[in-house]
Design a protein around this nucleic acid. Structure first.
Lengths: 191, 191
DNA sequence: CAATAATCTTGACAATGTAAAGATACAGGC
DNA sequence: GCCTGTATCTTTACATTGTCAAGATTATTG
């Protein structure tokens, strides 16, 4: 508990406040001091929970990634085939970032996903959304009785990932208005 | 001319200095004051040429995009078919950003390409590299005697663009080390 | 209950973006 | 050539920011 001096759960409060600020004002308006102020603590209080600003940002990224994963999992749920699941996942992927361009920029822009991954020690491909896609892809091979070499799998996986990720990237360029409706992804894109 | 007070060509010098800083120290180390210092002028001198930091950044982006375009055009040159040209362009695209992840982050990260495009008034799809791809794609349809509706064209174009852009994006995640060699793009990815 | 650790505040500092006011150089009209 | 306006640059100033150090306050643990 605690009201006065000790906040009680400042760490999580800082993360939430950070997400809120990014949502409402974009990443460029996220400062340690504002986040602290939003939580009603002094400007140096965050240093009890995060080494520096980057560490706060990484924590926020994990938080956003979690919610992202929830959307992907939701999209997959109940789909009859792996193919349908992959398409649904692709749609959810693009839709998520299309609705929240700030999240895309925040997650993949600037200091990149790299730092995020490095923080999880020895990243070797286990970015949660990518893992999910791989699971679905292997299921797809199984369900369709397909045999592929590891290299072929790798290429196809990256291909699918790239299409979806690239589309999300483009969808986030608000200036780009094509006749294409990003909320209604054509299956041709994913097969 | 001019040594003492008037620099002579400060605007271009600032852009060049900015590119250099991004190359050597990454975007996070690019500050107006450092750029000014690198040019041997006072910290407020840039304001005679750029409204604010963003405007300097946009100018730098244009500069980088120009060199990017040169690589793409070089890659296309001398290719016998449009198909070969598109593949070569895709390789050049990924290679460019793979070699300069800082450029990718700089161009597409953070404040996004959006601002860049907005600045060129009413962007309606004429991002130079994309225009180039469209030209090659239309040539590809022509050379292969293919008939496509505008919508189909749009989708295929975005698909190709997304693959290449997405691959470049992934290639820039240094943490991701797949068995895939980004400098030797498999044709399967682009056909 | 005492000591240690965790958490938070206050105060300070350097770096940064930006604005205002003034200095210097250049351009064109006389 | 000279004067005047304009473009360019400097200086000064200020608010914001990330970060650190020293200290205050609370929690925890032996």
């Amino acid at each position: 508990m605690a009201d006065s001096y000790h906040h009680g759960n400042l760490r999580q409060a800082l993360i939430d406040a950070g997400v809120k600020i990014i949502n409402e004002n974009g990443e460029e308006n996220l400062s340690l001091r504002k986040v602290a102020a939003a939580c009603g603590v002094s400007h140096a209080a965050p240093y009890a929970h995060f080494k520096d600003k980057d560490e706060l940002i990484e924590a926020i990224k994990e938080n956003v990634t979690e919610r992202f994963m929830e959307k992907l999992v939701d999209a997959i749920e109940g789909k009859p085939t792996a193919d349908a699941a992959i398409i649904a996942m692709g749609r959810a992927y693009v839709t998520f970032f299309s609705k929240n361009p700030d999240y895309y920029i925040f997650l993949f822009g600037k200091q990149n996903i790299t730092a995020h991954l490095k923080m999880n020690k020895e990243y070797k491909g286990d970015y949660p959304p990518f893992l999910l896609l791989r699971r679905m892809y292997l299921l797809h091979l199984e369900q369709n009785g397909l045999e592929k070499t590891v290299e072929e799998q790798e290429i196809e996986l990256i291909k699918i990932w790239s299409i979806v990720h690239g589309m999300a990237s483009i969808a986030c360029m608000k200036g780009v208005k094509s006749s294409f409706n990003w909320n209604d992804i054509d299956e041709r894109l994913l097969t």
